[in-house]
Structures are given as C-alpha cells and as structure tokens.
C-alpha cells in the first residue's frame, strides 16, 4: 500500500547511516512537545505498565504451579494459547471496538508478556535442587517460607530471564501501537511510512532498538545486584 511507493523510492542502494545522521541533526525531532524525549517517556510508560501487569498475572501462577509441581500441562497450554494470539490483530480489533486509548494497547502487550514470565517462573522453581528444598523442610520451614526464602531466590536467574524477554518483546512490539494512532517511538516509524519520510523511519527504528538494548543492559545489572552470589557462580 503506502509502502509500495516508498519501496520504489528507496529501492536503490540506500545508506542507512545517512538517514540516521539527518535524523540526529534535525532539531525538529529533539525539541518541543513531540520531542524524542517525550515519546521515549511514553514508550517506557507503556512498557513498564504492561510488564508490571503481566508479572502480576503470571508470576504468582508460575510460583504456585512450580512449587506444587502440579499444573505443568495447564501452564504449557496457557502459554501456547497466549502466544498464538496475534498481537497486531488483537490491537487493531480492540481499538476498533473500544476507541483509541491505553487499554486496547495494553491488553495485547500483556498477552505477549505473560508466556515468557509464566514459563520461566514455573521452570525456574521446578528446577530448584530438591535437596535444598528438603533441607529447608527439615529445618522446619513452612511451605510459604520455602517458596519465599529458598525457591524464589534460587530460581531468580530463570525468572529474570523470563522478565527480560517479556520486556524486550514489549518494547519492540509497542511500536505497532502507533498504527492505531497511539503514541510512543513507533510514531516515527508509522508517520514516516505514511509521509514517505525515510529519515523518520530509520530514526524511529534505531531509537527503539537502542531502548531494547538499554533494557537488556538494565536486566544484566539487575541480575548482578539481586541474584545471590552463591547461585550466580554456578
């Protein structure tokens, strides 16, 4: 459709760096109400809220099934079902049904983030050394104490991995929110597409990729800080 013309226009060998350079040196993008910073903030806001909501849904369930050892098949089915839901289609459908707003954007993002968190929590807690759990039980710990003081700390690397893939997927996918007239960094990509403005598209894409890398870095730091050294060493 729109992109067909763009494709022809950009069909010849293109130097992406030139576009990026123009983007970085155009003051219009960096000041004022719709500045990069504003959109970056919006993007982080959606990501944070969606990740939090997905964690609130998936983490306790993963802890429960992982701790009791029951419901493994249920977790698999739930995760596959959530993965099978097409994020893009869901976003468009909910926007058409509910109007432009945060909820139609948030629901597909949460659905996207639930499977990695759920599976990582379940698998992480299931995979805790049974000897450690037995020892905790032998010390007289109650199930809740075992979960909070032994299983969750030991499963933290896996849980953090799950949260990390969820966060990266949300950051990358939140760009399509702009397709239904919502904000965030995706605006540059979608607006650029409809205005045949390749500079904007490249600039937006690079910004989103940088944000994802920043999220990866954040989780690497988080892992160093919160994971017990005894577990990290393994």
């Amino acid at each position: 459709m729109v992109a067909r013309a763009l494709g022809k226009k950009a069909g010849r060998a293109v130097n992406l760096l030139n576009y990026l350079n123009s983007f970085l040196h155009d003051p219009a993008y960096w000041h004022g109400q719709d500045s990069v910073w504003q959109r970056l903030l919006q993007h982080c806001e959606y990501t944070g809220i969606a990740l939090l909501a997905a964690a609130v849904l998936a983490f306790p369930l993963g802890c429960l099934t992982g701790h009791t050892g029951r419901g493994g098949p249920l977790v698999s089915v739930l995760a596959t079902a959530a993965r099978a839901l097409p994020t893009f289609g869901l976003l468009v459908l909910l926007t058409v049904l509910m109007g432009i707003g945060f909820l139609p954007v948030a629901v597909p993002l949460v659905a996207l983030a639930v499977p990695p968190i759920l599976l990582a929590t379940h698998v992480g807690i299931r995979g805790v050394d049974p000897a450690a759990v037995d020892a905790a039980r032998g010390l007289g710990m109650r199930p809740m104490q075992i979960l909070l003081q032994v299983e969750i700390p030991a499963a933290l690397p896996s849980i953090l991995n799950g949260l990390r893939s969820a966060a990266v997927q949300i950051v990358a996918t939140a760009t399509i929110a702009a397709y239904v007239s919502f904000g965030g960094l995706g605006r540059y990509i979608v607006d650029g597409l409809s205005e045949y403005d390749y500079v904007q598209v490249v600039g937006g894409a690079v910004l989103v990729a940088l944000l994802s890398i920043a999220v990866l870095g954040l989780f690497a730091v988080l892992k160093r800080v919160v994971v017990s050294p005894g577990i990290r060493a393994r």
Partner: peptide, 22 residues
C-alpha cells in the same frame, strides 16, 4: 541473537524494503 531479536519487527521490515524490495 538477543540483540537482533530486540529490533522491532515493524522497523526491521521497513528497513529491509530498501534492500529486498516489497
């Protein structure tokens, strides 16, 4: 692989149009 995975699909498609066309 993880960094490549973090490139948003929409942007990835659009950037590739320049090289592989529609």
């Amino acid at each position: 692989a993880t960094v490549a995975y973090s490139i948003p699909s929409l942007a990835f498609f659009v950037l590739l149009i320049a090289y592989t066309g529609l």
